[in-house]
């Protein structure tokens, strides 16, 4: 690791407030090792998602009737099914690997769609202000006031659960956050002299927005997107858990947790491993996002 955590200095003697709480210190230390998060993410999310077709030991949708509810390898199971099987005899490891593909694709596509929409509207609102700003910001408030799960229920009831439905829900939940954040930044950047200079040099509004303002809010957008992958994965898991996610039999982590719910006492591994995958992935994503924010946003002091 080329980025060690800062040395603890005797803070009290300098009249500095007492060092943060133990849990907070662990968090801060973890945060200074972005490679750890990247490693966890690669192992849990990216590599399985890309290579599940070749690396997964079993078919994620075809169970073996004779091998139902087999425990993981060190709990009485065999290496045939390292993380055990579910009640239809499907390999949990394979299902988690394919589930990573669902999580990754939904968060990437959802964030892209929502981000594109939100950034565009935020840019327009912040740059032109006036009635455009008013309309867009009222829409943002409406969107933020609607609970995502409720919206998902309505959409799923109307069109049936599908990949597109989830993307629409995710985009709908996310765009307002981007729009609000980007608008705030644009409001301050549009007053900078280099924007005025571009204007008196004859640049069009479109050009000023895309070439002069957008690159200056890119940091914020990147940080926001990274931090949101985690919450999108949680959202997707929650939707799948409720049966509103990707239709069966495609494996999704949230659905797998839901499937093992009734068996949590007798066959804990069915829910546990997908739950662990969600936890570790989201945790690493938050660490990475925090680290990125510290690195990219000089306005925020590292506490």
């Amino acid at each position: 690791m080329n980025n060690p955590p800062p040395e603890d200095t005797p803070a009290e003697s300098l009249g500095v407030p007492a060092p943060p709480h133990l849990l907070r210190r662990i968090w801060l230390n973890l945060r200074s090792y972005p490679l750890l998060s990247v490693f966890v993410l690669l192992v849990l999310l990216v590599i399985p998602a890309l290579t599940a077709d070749w690396l997964a030991p079993h078919d994620p949708t075809q169970g073996v009737i004779m091998d139902r509810r087999l425990p993981p390898v060190f709990f009485g199971g065999t290496w045939e099914y390292p993380l055990g099987t579910d009640r239809l005899g499907r390999d949990i490891l394979s299902r988690i690997m394919y589930g990573a593909r669902v999580s990754l694709s939904i968060s990437l596509v959802g964030i892209f769609v929502g981000g594109l929409l939100g950034v565009t509207l935020g840019l327009l609102a912040g740059y032109f202000r006036g009635w455009i700003d008013t309309i867009i910001m009222r829409l943002v408030e409406i969107s933020l006031a609607l609970p995502a799960i409720l919206l998902a229920l309505v959409l799923a009831a109307a069109s049936g659960p599908s990949f597109q439905t989830i993307i629409i829900v995710v985009a709908f939940v996310l765009w307002a956050l981007y729009a609000r954040q980007v608008r705030g930044e644009v409001l301050s950047i549009r007053e900078r002299d280099y924007v005025a200079r571009a204007r008196v040099a004859g640049a069009s509004h479109f050009r000023i927005m895309v070439r002069h303002i957008l690159p200056n809010v890119a940091n914020t957008i990147i940080v926001l997107a990274t931090l949101q992958v985690g919450s999108v994965i949680i959202l997707e898991a929650a939707l799948s858990f409720l049966g509103l996610g990707i239709p069966r039999p495609t494996p999704a982590w949230g659905m797998m947790v839901a499937d093992g719910r009734q068996l949590i006492v007798s066959a804990w591994w069915i829910s546990f491993f997908p739950g662990l995958a969600i936890t570790l992935t989201v945790f690493s994503l938050n660490l990475l996002g925090d680290w990125l924010r510290d690195r990219l946003d000089p306005k925020l002091e590292i506490v």
Binding site: D193, Y194, A196, H212, N216
Partner: peptide
């Protein structure tokens, strides 16, 4: 737009902020 910067151009007050970083 053709006039601005083409026929009539302008230099602003603060050099620190008039160039895009």
């Amino acid at each position: 737009r053709r006039i601005r910067g083409g026929s009539i151009s302008m230099v602003l007050q603060d050099p620190q902020t008039s160039l895009n970083p």
